[in-house]
Nucleic acid binder design. Structure first.
Length: 416
RNA sequence: GUGAGUGUAGCUCAAUGGUAGAGUGUCGGUCUGUGGAACCGAAUGUUGGGGGUUCAAAUCCCCUCACUCACCCCA
């Protein structure tokens, strides 16, 4: 019979790695509420139109990478490729803009993109991120950037760089785009085929190209920084100066362009040089028109999304601070029932205990306990039953003591 | 979507075109009230799948599938 395996680009997460997942999820839930973010959970699929309108029909994500399907009532649905559009939709639909203050949300969950898998890239992957609505200040941009940067340091991620840029707004970007397009058109024949195509569809993304020739040519192209209108320019200056208050180091990268269409003004990315080709740990920026675009009021947005798989690639082994484990061993089969009773009483009190029902002798059980990594083994033998006691063996240092059964609670309290 | 590399035991990997192996893990024993060692023994494979060349294919050729990395794109 043919073996069924997990679909391409998906994976099962279990033993040692799952501890890192639990660790990072705990940290996220512990960290972001500091800034008064509240968790939000949105559906894993949405109407396809949400992403088409939200992310932009010209984007690579929408054109090539979405898991789109029809349900039985012929609804056009898509597995979410990112979470910002959903959060905005949820906020509009539930009128959260008038009900929740401050308008700050964080999320954790799976996203789906039909990409070819490679290091740090999966078809089902996980992101966490934050969204702030209705705050147009440059200071909040800096705070969001700071929190993302500081969070990575909090969980001990090393060798990270913060790249910063401004992509302008509807007032200054068009002029820039026109000049850029004109300039690119002049050099058209020297650009790669992909970039030639982008000239008229999305010229900003020429800056994304990794082709050395294209990089060289586009270095002489107009830079958005030089085109920023007064408002965008001073906003950008304020972001930078506030970042210095937060003592965050950054570099200005005029080539930085976010892949989704909704970004305005501030754009940023944190990358790591310990990763492979997919080196962006997180990215985000300001999106002042998305809420309106999706049918809401004229409310601004600012946020970021981080790739959990990529962070985990860089995470040191999480030290699990779980409770200690107890193995209950019986000397001979007739005593197994006593072991079960003892185990039940431990479980009832919330301790982690294990009985092996399949071992005939004590030796086997100790061997198994050792393999599991047990901390203490309780031994029940004829002697212990007669004297109403329990022998407790410390599996780490070989020490063994015998205590009276009525002393057990006290021992547990002191040692587990 | 494009390209390159790799598929052999649960895991890590050997095997000039000539009997499919080792280490490790698993199970049992030496050892019936005491685990990390040692020694002895056992089980496990359609060599990813299909086709072809050959007296003979894990090995060469073709197709296909999967995984990995890179391009692309992005978190």
């Amino acid at each position: 019979m043919k073996r069924i395996i997990a679909p391409k680009g998906t994976k099962d997460i279990f033993l040692p790695e799952i501890e890192k997942w639990q660790y990072i999820e705990e940290k996220i839930r512990g960290y972001f509420p500091r800034f008064l973010y509240k968790e939000i959970r949105t559906p894993i699929f949405e109407y396809s139109e949400l992403f088409q309108r939200g992310i932009g029909t010209e984007t690579e994500v929408v054109q090539k990478e979405m898991y789109t399907f029809k349900d039985k009532a012929n609804r056009d649905l898509t597995l979410r490729p990112e979470n910002t559009a959903s959060v905005v939709r949820a906020a509009i639909e539930n009128d959260l803009f008038n009900r929740v203050y401050p308008l700050r949300f964080f999320y954790i969950g799976p996203m789906f993109r039909y990409d070819k898998p490679q290091k740090g890239r999966f078809r089902q992957f996980h992101q966490f991120g934050v969204e702030v609505f209705g705050d147009e200040s440059a200071q909040v941009d800096a705070e969001v950037i700071y929190s993302s940067y500081d969070f990575l340091k909090e969980i001990n991620i090393k060798d990270i760089q913060l790249h910063l840029n401004s992509v302008g707004c509807e007032n200054c970007r068009p002029k820039f785009l026109r000049d850029l397009e004109a300039e690119a058109e002049k050099k058209k024949n020297d650009l790669c085929i992909d970039c030639q195509r982008k000239i008229h569809t999305n010229p900003l993304r020429i800056f994304d190209c990794k082709n050395l020739k294209c990089i060289e040519i586009s270095n002489d192209f107009p830079k958005i920084i030089d085109y920023l209108c007064e408002e965008c320019g001073s906003h950008f200056e304020d972001v930078k100066s506030t970042l210095s208050i937060f003592k965050v180091k950054f570099d200005i990268n005029s080539r930085l362009v976010r892949g989704l269409d909704y970004y305005t003004k501030t754009a940023f990315e944190i990358s790591s040089n310990q990763l492979g080709a997919q080196d962006a740990l997180l990215g985000g920026g300001r999106y002042n028109n998305l809420v309106k675009e999706l049918g809401g009021a004229d409310i601004s947005g600012m946020g970021f999304a981080a790739g959990i798989e990529r962070i985990i690639l860089q995470l040191d082994d999480a030290k699990s601070k779980k409770g200690k484990m107890i193995f209950i061993a019986y000397q001979s089969l007739p005593l197994m029932n006593k072991a079960i009773q003892l185990a039940k009483s431990l479980w009832d009190k919330g301790y982690r205990a294990y009985v092996d029902y399949n071992s005939k002798n004590l030796k086997k059980q100790l061997k198994k306990a050792n393999k599991i990594g047990i901390d203490y083994t309780f031994i029940l033998g004829e002697d212990e039953i007669v004297t109403k006691s329990i022998s407790i063996k410390n599996m780490k240092d070989y020490e063994q003591i015998t205590i009276k059964q009525e002393e057990l609670d006290k021992w547990l309290k002191n040692n587990i």
